[in-house]
Structures are given as structure tokens and as C-alpha cells.
Simulated assay, not measured.
Amino acid sequence: MKSLTLAASLALAIGVAAPSLVSPNYALANETHLVNQQVTDALTNPLRQAANIERDQYRHPGETLSFFGVKPSDTLVELWPGGGWYAEILAPYLAKEGHYIAANFDANPPEGLEVPGYRIRLGKALDKWLKDHGDTLGQASSISFDPPRLIELGAPNSADVVLTFRNLHNWAKSGVLEQVFDSVYKVLKPGGTFGVVEHRANPGMDLSTGYMVQDEMIALAEKVGFTLVASSEVNANPKDSKDHPKGVWTLPPSLRLGDQDKAKYLAIGESDRMTLKFVKKS
């Protein structure tokens, strides 16, 4: 029997209650996003881990994908899917008509290249998950993405959508964020969508906290050539004071302080996040 999880070492039961399709909206009571039936089906598909479904209350996947306008027929690239939280939704959603492409951690880096062990581990797990479920995930595939060494995301003008979730700070720390944005621009078709969700800083916060300044991210995307067409507060969290001792990783799901003040950070929930929709000029 094939594993239903991304990590081969985990064996989580799938018999869980369906997630709520109307998640809490912390900031804008009048901001609504209609979730189509295909997204609804993807949110409740049996490949999703129970622990991941529990995080829907913080990550609002139905509303987020609705805001980005992702269609079942899209060719979509997800940058650094990590443990596959969104892959478990996107790959089934696109299986019949579209194409999910994971711009994955390099699972087989060259000998002698120093790469964090967790990236190799997660890269291998996601590649295995896509292979194990190839019969139900249609054209779903992966490429290795390790900027600046591996920076190409596919043939120019070949993708309808590129999405990234909570990754910008990693590339900024490595000094490659503008290169990543440029690669996204190149792979998108004219009129294609670049969707960004990222931990949102207060002005003047240090990059080491894991939070990024929203206006700076918009300015960088516009410098590359994108146009900001909309922003959403669907992933906002005003409970997040952003002054935590271990930065954003103090909050769930990381909880870097362990049991120290755990109840306090669980009550805050996951970070305050910007949600930005850019398009490539036609």
C-alpha cells in the first residue's frame, strides 16, 4: 500500500474531519473569496496529512488560492515546497487538466557542496511522494531549484502561475532574492500570476527575524517587471507582535522555545503574513 504522506517515516491516519472552508479572516470582515468546487475537493483529498489539515485555520488555503485565481487547467510552479504542505493541495487540484511543478530542494547535490541536511531530506521525500502517486497526480513533476547554482524554472513563457509560501526571507539572506524574482518573471507567460505569501515585518525589522517588509518586496517585484494587481489580508494576524526571542520561528509550527511559554505562542498562532498578487506585463 502506498504511503499517504510526504515523509516516508510518518504514518498518519487520514480519517479526519473535513477542514472548514471558511477560515477566520483576522483583518477584513468584508473580504470574501469564493472557493470553487475543485479547490474544495482538493482541500479534502485523501493525500493530505491530518497534521497539515489542522493548519488550515492559519494558512487559509482555499481563500488564498481563490485570491490568486489558480485554475485547474494551469501550469503552476511552486517554489521550494519544503515538506509539501501546499503540494498536497495543488498537485491533486491540477491533476486532471493542469500541471503541478515543484521547484524543489536539490535532492542530489554535487559531492562536496555544503547543503543543509534538511533540504536533502525534504527534497527526496517530495520527489518520492510525487513518484509514488504519479497515477493520481497527472503530469505532476519536480525540478531542482537551488539559486544561484540552479536558477532556471523552465522554458521561458511556459507557466501560468508561480507561487511561493514563506520563502522570501531565505533567498534574501542568501542575497539571491532578485535573481529568484527574475527567474519567476522569465518562466511566466505574459499575463501570468506570481503569488507571494510571506511573514510581514514592521518597518525597520532585521532580516534575521524571518520577517520581510511588504513595501520592499513590492518594490523589488516591480523592479524586475511585475505589476502588483492586488493584496489580501486573508493571512493577516494582528495577534503577532513580531518581537519574539527566536524571531518568527518562536511561533507555531516551529515553536523554537519548546515548552517555554508554549501556550502563549500557540494562542498567538502562526505569523502575520502579506499576501500579494503580481502579474507579468503582457
Rank of each mutant, 00 (worst) to 15 (best):
K239S: 10
D215I: 10
G84S: 09
D272M: 02
L255R: 07
N25H: 13
V162Q: 02
V115A: 03
G98D: 11
A236C: 07
G210T: 06
K280V: 09
G84D: 05
S73N: 14
K124D: 05
K264M: 10
L79T: 06
G134A: 12
G154E: 11
T193D: 03
P190W: 07
K246A: 13
A125N: 11
V224A: 07
A95C: 12
S20K: 11
L94E: 10
T250P: 01
V180E: 00
I120K: 06
I143N: 03
N30R: 11
G138M: 10
R48D: 06
K242S: 08
R48K: 09
L43M: 13
D261M: 00
K281P: 01
F226M: 07
S3F: 08
H33F: 15
W80K: 02
G69D: 08
L94A: 09
P72A: 14
S23H: 12
S254T: 13
K281E: 14
A11D: 14
L122H: 00
V184F: 02
L90K: 00
F181L: 14
P72S: 15
N52R: 05
Y211T: 06
Q214N: 06
P245N: 11
G204P: 11
V70R: 01
G258W: 09
D182L: 06
G247K: 00
G98T: 04
E222Q: 15
T40I: 11
I53Y: 00
V16Q: 08
G84W: 02
D261F: 03
I151V: 15
D135G: 03
Q37K: 13
A102M: 08
I120V: 15
V180C: 04
D215A: 15
N202E: 13
K262G: 03
I101P: 01
A7F: 14
V162S: 05
G247S: 06
T275A: 07
N25I: 09
